[in-house]
Design a protein around this nucleic acid. Structure first.
Lengths: 300, 300
DNA sequence: CTCCTTTATACTCGACTTGAGTATATCGCG
DNA sequence: CGCGATATACTCAAGTCGAGTATAAAGGAG
């Protein structure tokens, strides 16, 4: 079984939420995601990642999940001798104590994806982006219909609902259309901050994965402090999803799952009536799904 | 940005369904999954995989999706100079024309996972497997409770429902408990056929991913012929899920999605009343989800 | 030719889930 | 004490889902 030689590199999308803002850990003042070599000394990929993230940033990583492995030739600068395989991970971090001087910093992820935050309604920039994309669709007569449908679906145009999970599809459309700086669209400002190489695409992958995951796995709690109020929990989910949620229904959803329990304490720091504090029930299996199957199973 | 050197290898889980049996492509008479080196000549990982699968097997791969990247030290035989990174893919193949002599062969995937097929009720072997696992849980008093809960959840014991998606979790429990041949359980026959290295685990990963995916993405159609009856479609889904489905509800689910359309023809090959033939509506976006969101979204 | 078996297709009904809205409780503060 | 603010509880209609029943249209046995 012969195998080709390659350089191996690990890239991390580390996410945290401070107050109402979802953040991602970056290096180079927000221009790149933290990354490092995968070395012989490392026991496994996960172990390798945990090790240097812990070393370099001082933050223990809670939940960790593999995102994707890239090796496209046009994505990496070939050394001429071998190519680079990049294995990306999504990690969730609880605390975000002020980073020391010169240390990696946290940046709000909507800096890079302003069109993804719909908590205050659809951003104004979306309109302009959609128009750019539609003009791009018209330019290629042979693929026009397909492109139009993709745009309408991804951006929730013409009656289709906005789907927060499609962060990656939206970014890829914008990349294809040359609307983002990475792919040529210099003049156009509403498309957010760019990043080194394909790091912004990796971040989009991480956001999309996390947004999808919070719907069926109780991973949000990896981002919460030990005890929290229901509104804090809701605000965290809203920050991640970039959407506002219906409060009574959110509460109903949460306590129908038996995921949390009251600590017995209350806090009056919220302004109005004191809120009960809750904690995550660690007895709950991580595998446990929020929702059920979608197949019409027959039991005889 | 320094990067460590490693060998890169691609591994494929290629799935097809013949009649009522889900199959996987294998080499070495069913002992291993097809794999090959990732070389400089390849444009990307996907392209590399498509290339040698096409060359070696003569089957064009339809849908292709990355599964997981492994590099654990104990999983691969180190060359002493570098380690091996294995990138696994799940591919769906439509036709399964008889493979030529000496060519790779297809094996029913329940040969390797007999306990996963619940179409004729829970297999007898499940009982014995569950008892083995429970004895294993009792042996470690400190982790006993956690293990018990994992077993009950994964195998649907004590009132919990069997969840077909948990193929990987079940295999991993069995591996941990030393019930499968790979991890020492030689005497025990009900645990199916074993494979080279960690290939059976990779197959479990592929099965689990496919079972989960058919619930929210219309990927089944990648396994269907150009035109098919509704029962054929149902049998294919049932083969993959290892479950029987409720016929009227399956039909309702399918046509509420607008995924297929009548060809206008019928076939009388099914025995009774002739069945209408359908085809997949290719206009449908692949991204299109079967079901909706599980967050209580608020629209103001 | 008719009945019977077999598969296909259509409809019904109750339980549960989901989206949306309303009502009541309890704090700080002027 | 009343008012704004937040917390918490309840209601209700529409939609979805599981389960079962009814009718249609073929082939084959007698």
């Amino acid at each position: 079984m012969p195998t080709g030689l390659a350089h191996a590199e690990l890239i991390a999308v580390l996410a945290a939420v401070t107050g109402d803002e979802p953040r991602v850990m970056t290096i180079r003042s927000g221009d790149a995601l933290p990354s490092g070599p995968f070395e012989l000394a490392h026991r496994s990929l996960q172990a390798g990642l945990r090790e240097w993230v812990g070393d370099q940033t001082g933050h223990p990583v809670g939940y960790l999940e593999q995102l994707y492995t890239f090796a496209d030739r046009d994505r990496t600068q070939d050394t001429g001798y071998s190519r680079t395989i990049s294995i990306s991970y999504l990690g969730l971090v609880r605390e975000q104590a002020a980073p020391g001087a010169g240390k990696p910093g946290w940046h709000g992820w909507y800096e890079y994806f302003p069109w993804e935050d719909h908590r205050k309604g659809a951003p104004d920039s979306l309109q302009a982006i959609a128009e750019h994309l539609q003009r791009w669709a018209e330019r290629d007569t042979s693929r026009r219909d397909h492109r139009r449908r993709r745009i309408e679906f991804a951006f929730g145009l013409h009656g289709a609902a906005w789907n927060e999970d499609l962060t990656l599809q939206r970014y890829e459309l914008m990349y294809e259309a040359g609307v983002v700086a990475e792919s040529g669209g210099e003049e156009f400002v509403a498309t957010g901050r760019s990043m080194f190489a394909d790091h912004r695409r990796i971040l989009a992958t991480g956001i999309a994965r996390l947004r999808a995951k919070i719907k069926y796995r109780p991973v949000v709690f990896e981002l919460m402090p030990e005890s929290f109020t229901l509104l804090q929990l809701q605000r965290t989910v809203e920050a991640l999803a970039g959407l506002t949620l219906h409060k009574p229904n959110f509460r109903r959803l949460i306590d129908s799952q038996d995921l949390i329990e009251e600590t017995g304490d209350v806090t009056s720091e919220t302004g109005g009536r004191p809120a009960k504090l809750f904690r995550y029930r660690h007895a709950v299996l991580e595998e446990r799904a929020f929702s059920g199957s979608k197949l019409p199973i027959s039991r005889n």
